[in-house]
Amino acid sequence: MGNTQQGKPNKKLGVPIVGKIESYSSRPSSERGMILGCYILFPDNTVPHEYASLFHVVVVTPKGIEMFCLLTGEKRYPSYTPPPKTTIVSSVFSQDFIQNAHLIVAESNGGFTLIEAYTLRVDKRIGLSHSLPSLNATKNVISTMISPAPEILYVGYLTGVVKVWHTAVTNPQFIFGKEYELPPVRCLCYSSKHRKLIVGYEGTYENQHGKFIKLEKNALRVYVPNASGESNECTLLDGFNGTCFSIDLCERNDWIIAISSEECGMYVWNINTYTLDMMINIPKFDSQPQIITQILTLERPNANYVIFGASDGSVVVSELVIEGNTIVWKPLKRLTIHSDDNYAVEYLHYEEKIDTLIVGNTFSTATFISNFFSEGLGVSFSVSNEQKIDDEI
């Protein structure tokens, strides 16, 4: 299909931007892997590199990292490939790094690589070495990662623990939880307002004795990180069922929002009281079953938007509003993202500077929905088959 440029100008840039990018397009789709990160690099006159004066997109997949022009989709020559027999498992982008913008990728050997954003050159590696015994390496398989502050990483592992790393040192600073007492960590979220870490888990797992365990209730956990003295004490977010696919926050309303694998469940807790204030099952939007795979919350001046990515490749835009004393979910619009096949949404990110929603799928394709708020929310939405309105991207 190739990379495509959109026809209408982006209102904040004045020129069109790319509509879709296929990373590793020369490979069969089954060999590409999901979008782990898709980051827009804006011109930066403080970086002494020719590419720092241009607009770029950096796409991270398990196979490696590629760079493209944001305006045309043209592929640039910098790239990064992980070491042999190693894949990338998670990534973060740090614009506020002490020296220039950096990508930080977690790799399947349990280590981290710090990469200069505009050159894709390796700055340094931290964490586990490639020569670790296989048992130790297995215990340190990374499942997810976030960076709540410059050079700080909160990293989830298949052993059910969360480790806190600083990129200046080679060992973790603290570990939340005990190995194999909990299922693998599936997702992480950090509240800057409340300084709380929320951890979501798989609903089933195999413990260190090889016993398969399915949780009847999968409580999410909230930790309060404290640089002066970390603690393993946590508060449970009860009422959740299934695997926690994705977590996000609505800081303005003090909401924690999580999506379950079971019947498209959406749960909303109050981050202060830890009470479950809402639980609904997102309805089907057509005759085909779907799973909500990703959630993105966007706080706008007059509304709280919740965006879902689904297993059929579509994106559903909705609102969470308070009516009386009740939280109400209001669907607004469904965006059907065209491709030869419908691949599950695995990545959602909104770039405020250019009013663009980025949607990454299972097979290394990123779609850029330009003018998302300025043009994208003018159509009402109904979940009934007779009145359903889809926009096609």
Results as ranks from 00 to 15, higher is better:
residue 91 S to A: 15
residue 56 H to A: 12
residue 95 Q to W: 10
residue 58 V to S: 12
residue 75 K to Y: 04
residue 52 A to Q: 01
residue 97 F to G: 08
residue 60 V to S: 07
residue 99 Q to L: 15
residue 104 I to N: 02
residue 67 M to S: 09
residue 52 A to I: 01
residue 75 K to S: 08
residue 92 V to K: 01
residue 86 T to I: 10
residue 65 I to H: 05
residue 96 D to L: 13
residue 82 P to A: 02
residue 99 Q to M: 14
residue 95 Q to T: 12
residue 104 I to L: 09
residue 87 T to N: 11
residue 98 I to T: 09
residue 52 A to D: 00
residue 60 V to T: 13
residue 85 K to S: 14
residue 96 D to C: 11
residue 81 T to G: 05
residue 79 S to L: 05
residue 98 I to N: 04
residue 108 S to T: 00
residue 107 E to R: 09
residue 67 M to W: 04
residue 71 L to M: 11
residue 53 S to Q: 15
residue 58 V to A: 12
residue 95 Q to G: 04
residue 75 K to L: 13
residue 84 P to E: 15
residue 102 H to G: 00
residue 59 V to F: 01
residue 80 Y to K: 00
residue 61 T to E: 14
residue 100 N to E: 13
residue 71 L to V: 07
residue 88 I to N: 08
residue 87 T to L: 09
residue 80 Y to E: 03
residue 67 M to K: 01
residue 85 K to A: 14
residue 60 V to H: 08
residue 50 E to Y: 08
residue 96 D to T: 12
residue 70 L to M: 07
residue 103 L to E: 06
residue 106 A to G: 14
residue 85 K to L: 14
residue 89 V to N: 08
residue 104 I to D: 04
residue 98 I to S: 12
residue 64 G to L: 10
residue 89 V to Y: 10
residue 71 L to K: 11
residue 78 P to I: 01
residue 52 A to N: 00
residue 51 Y to L: 15
residue 90 S to P: 01
residue 102 H to N: 04
residue 80 Y to S: 02
residue 94 S to M: 14
residue 100 N to A: 09
residue 50 E to D: 11
residue 94 S to Q: 15
residue 83 P to S: 11
residue 100 N to H: 14
residue 102 H to S: 01
residue 50 E to S: 11
residue 95 Q to D: 09
residue 53 S to R: 15
residue 74 E to P: 01
residue 93 F to S: 05
residue 59 V to R: 05
residue 78 P to A: 05
residue 62 P to N: 13
residue 61 T to W: 11
residue 78 P to Y: 07
residue 70 L to E: 06
residue 88 I to A: 10
residue 53 S to K: 15
residue 95 Q to Y: 13
residue 86 T to Y: 07
residue 60 V to C: 10
residue 64 G to C: 09
residue 61 T to K: 13
residue 97 F to R: 14
residue 103 L to P: 03
residue 93 F to Y: 14
residue 70 L to D: 07
